[in-house]
Measured scan of single mutants.
Amino acid sequence: QVALSRTQVCGILREELFQGDAFHQSDTHIFIIMGASGDLAKKKIYPTIWWLFRDGLLPENTFIVGYARSRLTVADIRKQSEPFFKATPEEKLKLEDFFARNSYVAGQYDDAASYQRLNSHMNALHLGSQANRLFYLALPPTVYEAVTKNIHESCMSQIGWNRIIVEKPFGRDLQSSDRLSNHISSLFREDQIYRIDHYLGKEMVQNLMVLRFANRIFGPIWNRDNIACVILTFKEPFGTEGRGGYFDEFGIIRDVMQNHLLQMLCLVAMEKPASTNSDDVRDEKVKVLKCISEVQANNVVLGQYVGNPDGEGEATKGYLDDPTVPRGSTTATFAAVVLYVENERWDGVPFILRCGKALNERKAEVRLQFHDVAGDIFHQQCKRNELVIRVQPNEAVYTKMMTKKPGMFFNPEESELDLTYGNRYKNVKLPDAYERLILDVFCGSQMHFVRSDELREAWRIFTPLLHQIELEKPKPIPYIYGSRGPTEADELMKRVGFQYEGTYKWVNPHKL
């Protein structure tokens, strides 16, 4: 086992960053958080920038500027975001240094004079007029057009580079997404736009490419001749908990499936790229999406959770019991969808996408189930092999396979070949997804960000279904809070070829 401390991990990262040409360590950078008073800024962006600063992973002359409508001070920003920093008493001095680099400007999102004030403020910072500028839009999409237009007109660096990070949702359907994309691309070049999907920053999602293309053993079996089906799962054990009003506007397909799960599907299904260059990788992902037809209604199961009468606390409440959810809402909190990649490698292999709230566990994984062994000599005792990439929690890679049961006879039983990170790298604290992705933006690497043509294809696949749901308002199937979801989803999976045995229990190697 390799035991690495946080300091050692960050030392390795620093070495990698400083050796590259793309990370300008000594240049002045300004990180501007648009929507600095909001939840995302408070819980994710400010803490992430602090962790990067604490670990010495930001360029040395980096300033952080918050911008929002609320009249706040840096002290206010500190008060609301610091509880999420997880700072230790030993880091007190470092924390003071961090907040000394912070400033805040209040202004409207659609007022040109406010942006001119913001620009004057940035120019007044040390070497601010020639600094590289990175704008993070932690804002609702309704203000994107006004904000990007004003940034472009008043706040661009004339000497350094300018980059803009856009948070999902990128529209509600193909038409609104196209409108937003066309607007942003009329102001910024594609190499300046970073559409963030934080799932692409997760260690195991990034590991998929290495697993596939750096190991000879997987190449020959990664196709329709050997793989019976692919299941991509995202499960949350909690409901909307008072935030249903926002969720109800989008629903589970827009929230998770059309982005996170579809991105994971691309990494499983794509061909080997010409290189690890950002556009070479994204070219292959677009090719996969172009091979997927629009979702067919007979390959869809929609569910909505109801309270568990035997549960406790939140578990007793259904989705419609959330006071922020519109009365009688038919918005799905669970969806199972089957897609097919219609190309030579994957023809006929079902890709089953499942996601839901208020389920029995927290889990995100990719599961490849292989065909049955031909010419069975073990009297149907063999179960199908599976390769599982567990994204969260407890990152893991393992192969479910058959071995001989101890004893006199040739009785096979299920076991696993474990390729888990935790076994080799004991207690290594890896940077989280937002840390990686923000560092990628500083480096100018777009590999783990969504390109406009990729986004367009993703919406093309799901828009007809979303429009049909909005028009017909089908009643989702009720499922109990804390269950596996509607049984109809299991029946759909069985119908397209997935075999669920229920006889195997994964042993978490992190707890051995």
Rank of each mutant, 00 (worst) to 15 (best):
I253V: 12
R254V: 00
D255V: 03
D255G: 00
V256L: 10
M257S: 09
Q258K: 00
N259K: 03
N259G: 00
L261E: 01
L262A: 10
Q263Y: 03
M264D: 02
M264Q: 06
L265S: 05
C266E: 04
L267P: 04
L267W: 02
V268W: 04
V268S: 07
A269T: 12
M270E: 04
K272L: 06
K272Y: 05
K272V: 07
K272T: 05
P273T: 01
P273N: 01
P273G: 00
P273H: 01
S275Y: 03
N277G: 13
N277P: 04
N277I: 09
S278L: 02
S278V: 08
S278H: 09
D283F: 01
D283K: 04
D283N: 11
K285F: 01
V286E: 09
K287V: 06
C291Q: 13
E294T: 11
V295S: 13
Q296H: 15
A297T: 15
N299I: 04
V300M: 14
V300D: 00
V300P: 05
G303H: 03
Q304E: 00
V306K: 15
V306E: 14
G307R: 15
N308G: 08
P309H: 12
D310E: 14
E314C: 11
A315T: 15
T316F: 11
T316P: 10
K317T: 15
K317F: 12
K317D: 15
K317Y: 13
Y319R: 01
Y319I: 00
L320S: 09
P323I: 15
G328M: 12
T330L: 09
T330H: 13
T330I: 11
T331W: 03
T331E: 06
F334H: 07
F334G: 00
A335Q: 03
A336T: 15
A336D: 07
A336Q: 15
V337E: 07
V337F: 07
V338Y: 06
V338G: 11
E342W: 09
N343T: 13
N343H: 07
E344L: 07
W346F: 07
D347R: 13
G348T: 06
V349G: 04
P350G: 01
P350I: 01
F351V: 04
R354F: 02
R354M: 01
G356C: 02
G356R: 02
G356W: 03
K357T: 00
K357S: 02
L359Q: 10
N360R: 05
K363Q: 03
A364D: 04
V366I: 14
R367W: 00
R367Q: 05
L368Y: 05
L368C: 08
Q369M: 06
Q369K: 05
F370P: 02
H371Q: 11
V373Y: 06
G375K: 09
G375F: 08
I377L: 14
H379Q: 13
Q380V: 07
Q380A: 15
Q381R: 10
C382N: 13
C382S: 15
R384S: 07
L387C: 05
V388S: 06
V388P: 02
R390E: 07
Q392T: 10
E395G: 10
Y398M: 00
T399S: 12
K400A: 03
K400R: 10
K400W: 02
M402A: 11
M402Q: 13
T403Q: 08
T403N: 13
K404C: 01
K404P: 05
K405S: 13
M408D: 05
F409D: 11
F410P: 12
N411T: 13
N411C: 09
N411A: 12
N411W: 06
P412W: 07
P412S: 11
P412D: 03
L417K: 01
T420K: 06
T420N: 12
Y421I: 11
G422R: 15
N423M: 12
R424W: 00
Y425E: 05
Y425S: 06
K426A: 12
V428Y: 14
D432C: 10
A433G: 05
E435A: 08
R436V: 07
L437C: 09
V441S: 14
F442T: 13
F442P: 00
G444Q: 07
S445I: 08
S452W: 06
E454R: 01
L455V: 05
E457Y: 09
T463W: 02
P464F: 08
L466M: 09
H467M: 10
Q468K: 14
Q468M: 11
I469P: 00
E472I: 09
K473T: 13
P474F: 10
P474D: 13
P476V: 09
I477C: 11
I480N: 11
G482V: 00
R484T: 01
R484Y: 03
G485T: 00
P486G: 04
P486K: 04
T487H: 12
E488S: 14
E488R: 09
E488N: 09
E491Q: 10
E491N: 12
M493Y: 11
M493P: 06
V496E: 13
G497H: 11
F498K: 08
Q499A: 14
Y500E: 01
Y500N: 09
E501R: 10
G502R: 08
T503W: 07
K505C: 14
K505L: 12
W506T: 04
W506H: 05
W506G: 03
